[in-house]
Structure formats: structure tokens, C-alpha cells
Amino acid sequence: MNLTLYVWRQKGPKDAGRLVRYEAKDVSPDMSFLEMLDLVNEGLVRKGDDPIAFDHDCREGICGMCAQVINGIPQGPQKKTTVCQLHMRHFKNGDTIYIEPLRARAFPVIRDLVVDRGSLDKIIQSGGYISAHTGGVPDGNAILIPKDDADRAMDAAECIGCGACVAACPNGSAMLFTAAKVTQLATLPQGRTEAARRVCVMTEEMLGQGFGNCGNHYECQAVCPKDIKVQFIAKLNREFIKARLK
């Protein structure tokens, strides 16, 4: 099939950037979205043009590196699917596709569709872990964890840190990302010790990194490729209240 693409091209952080039109020809429905871009890029390179820069790595939906805004939806129109796992069979011959980078103040554009998501790491650095030392920890079975809690923690832990939630949020908030980590660790007994401090410092760091506040729009959940739920944000809020009442 043949497609018309409008792709955001921006040479560097200071460049203004604009949408450029490309024709993607002979796209196979079995291709992934990134393979379609590979095809376009090979054509550009052969012509001596700069290929479209985009982040990608594992190409199996788990590393979280690829994330672009396709027709206005971060991680694309297919629910619970990353861009690398979005296949072209979900598009029709003749479709026009808009491709833009994730947008938020905390995610400055580096080039074309590549953005800097280091601000998410900063949130984790502020306290998104259990401060366990290497070695000297008890036996794995010394801490019993009810299956429901382990499952719930796992639901939250599935976050791949792609930043789609931030890009989709009208407020550029990283609340879903933060809440997923807070919930994972606050649900497990190992993580309770630091729970109060963690929720406070992580939400503070979120603001400090230039993310917005949660407006309860739930766009984040709608685009999340790993189906992280906004109930985790409610959990974060409860943890916050608990921490402040202490």
C-alpha cells in the first residue's frame, strides 16, 4: 500500500522544526510501523537526504525507547501497543499519517522524533527504588507477599518508561509514570519502610523537572502501551495523604 506521511523534522533543539511530507510506497501490511519508517529512510539515504531520526531499540514492545505521536496519539492508534508493535495492517492504502515527537517541556526535542526523556530518570533517582544494599538481604521466602499484592505490584511494575503518558497529558504531567513506581513499591512489604518519603520526594521531583500537575483527564491511561491504570494515581494520592498525616 501507499501512504502519505507528514513527519516532524527538526535539526536540533534550537531549530524551529516543521512537518515535511513524504510518500511511503509499497508498504507491506506485515511491516511494523518502524519498519515502514526504515523503508522511507532507506529511500532518503539513497537520495542523499538525512533520514528521519527516531528512537528505537528492542522492537518487541518492552524497552520503551520508541515512542512517537501518530495522528495525535502517543504510541499510535492501536490500544495497548507500542509503535514498534503497531503493524501497518491497521492502516489503509492512501491513508495520511501525521508523525510528531512526544511533546512536553520536560522532553526537549533532540532531533526530529528523538526527545530527551532523562527527566523521567531524575524522578526515579529521587526515590523510585528500595534502598536495599547488595548482599546482606534476607532469603526471598522470608518475606511472604499475598498473591494479590504481588500481582498488583506487577501490574504497576509493567511500566516501560516510554513517556507516552506525559506526551498525551494536556498538562505534560508524569503522574502515571510516578504513580506506577510508587504503587509497585508501596504495595510490597519490602517497600513500605520508605513509602512515605518516596511518594513525597518523587512528586516533588516531578514538578521540579518541569512536568505539570495531574488534571485527571486520564489521557495517560488511554495511550499507555502497558495498560497502566489511573487507579495507581489514586493510590499515589492516598499514599501522599497518609505520608502527610503521619
Binding site: 507528514y6 495522528n71 496519539i73 510528531e100 498525551a168 483527564h217 486520564y218 489521557e219 488511554a222 495511550v223
Partner: peptide, 8 residues
């Protein structure tokens, strides 16, 4: 976004 598309 040039093309905005709200889901929720």
C-alpha cells in the same frame, strides 16, 4: 500537536 487527538 499539529494533529491533536484526545482519547479521553
Amino acid at each position: 500537536y499539529v494533529m491533536r487527538n484526545d482519547l479521553s
